[in-house]
């Protein structure tokens, strides 16, 4: 019998980043565990689009960080028998490239925290239309799940059949019930706002990337010579549809790359 293809989840970085739950399948001893996200999505394979914000190439492995505006995906392509093609694909990418990546999620835990890594099956450059298409569909898929969860939260005791009868697919209904079980207090409103901000390409197109925007803002707003204030940067970033989490990730990354430094607490200068 042909093996069923593993479902590919189109999810935002934020959904994966906020995930805390894993599900081991006793019937699949050697397989990686599923990640259960706050929207109840059962994830083993993901597909996402974003901007390459970091790249580190070694002989045995290439690591890239892809930001979709809501969070980062950390992608590692290994130079193994099975991964040679995907490493070559990752090697061909450059920082600030717009990319589509499909791959398997692996997890590791450290000091009680769960980290996610994506082993790519495909990693290719895409154009802006493809990026916008992915954002639009990923947002739609997430919204349908959010609405199903809200419906189930409002009607305690709902079953898969009840949710399906309201017009959702079996997968969406199962996800809604998983979300309620595993993440009963997850803030759906805040999550929806953060991902909806990504569907305004007109705002984002003014800046080549979030990174460029942040660098430019810090440089232009070091008004008293003591560095740009974090509060000002945060307000400006949010106006440009860059979430606080994305800003924090980017500041950390710019700091490690030596492009900015923190002069004093929450004050930044471009090097």
């Amino acid at each position: 019998m042909a093996r069923k293809r593993e479902f590919t989840n189109w999810i935002f970085g934020r959904e994966l980043r906020d995930s805390r739950e894993l599900e081991e399948r006793p019937d699949e001893e050697r397989a990686k565990p599923y990640v259960i996200t706050p929207l109840g999505t059962r994830v083993r394979r993901v597909l996402f689009c974003g901007l390459v914000s970091q790249k580190n190439t070694e002989e045995s492995m290439t690591r890239i960080t892809v930001t979709d505006g809501t969070g980062n995906f950390y992608v590692s392509a290994f130079n193994s028998d099975f991964g040679m093609q995907s490493k070559a694909m990752a090697d061909a990418l450059e920082i600030n490239d717009q990319v589509m990546v499909m791959g398997r999620v692996s997890t590791y835990q450290n000091e009680g925290k769960t980290y996610f890594n994506v082993n790519p099956e495909i990693a290719v450059r895409v154009d802006s239309v493809s990026m916008d298409y992915w954002r639009m569909k990923a947002l739609h898929i997430a919204r349908r799940k959010i609405y199903a969860i809200r419906m189930a939260r409002n009607r305690p005791g709902s079953t898969v059949a009840d949710i399906r009868d309201a017009g959702y697919s079996e997968l969406e209904a199962e996800s809604a019930l998983r979300s309620i079980e595993k993440y009963p207090d997850y803030d759906l409103q805040e999550f929806e706002s953060s991902i909806a901000a990504q569907i305004q390409p007109a705002v984002k197109e003014e800046h080549k990337s979030s990174k460029d925007f942040i660098l430019q803002y810090i440089q232009a707003n070091d008004t008293d010579g003591r560095g740009c204030r974090y509060e000002d940067l945060l307000a400006a970033s949010q106006n440009a549809s860059i979430s606080q989490n994305e800003l924090d990730d980017m500041l950390n990354s710019l700091g490690s790359d030596g492009e900015i430094f923190e002069v004093s607490l929450k004050r930044y200068k471009v090097i």
Binding site: V129, S130, D132, Y133, M136, K137, H140
Partner: peptide
């Protein structure tokens, strides 16, 4: 056909 903005508008309306 490769994805284009006209098709995306129709898709968006349907979604």
């Amino acid at each position: 056909n490769y994805m284009d903005t006209d098709f995306m508008k129709r898709l968006e309306a349907r979604m």
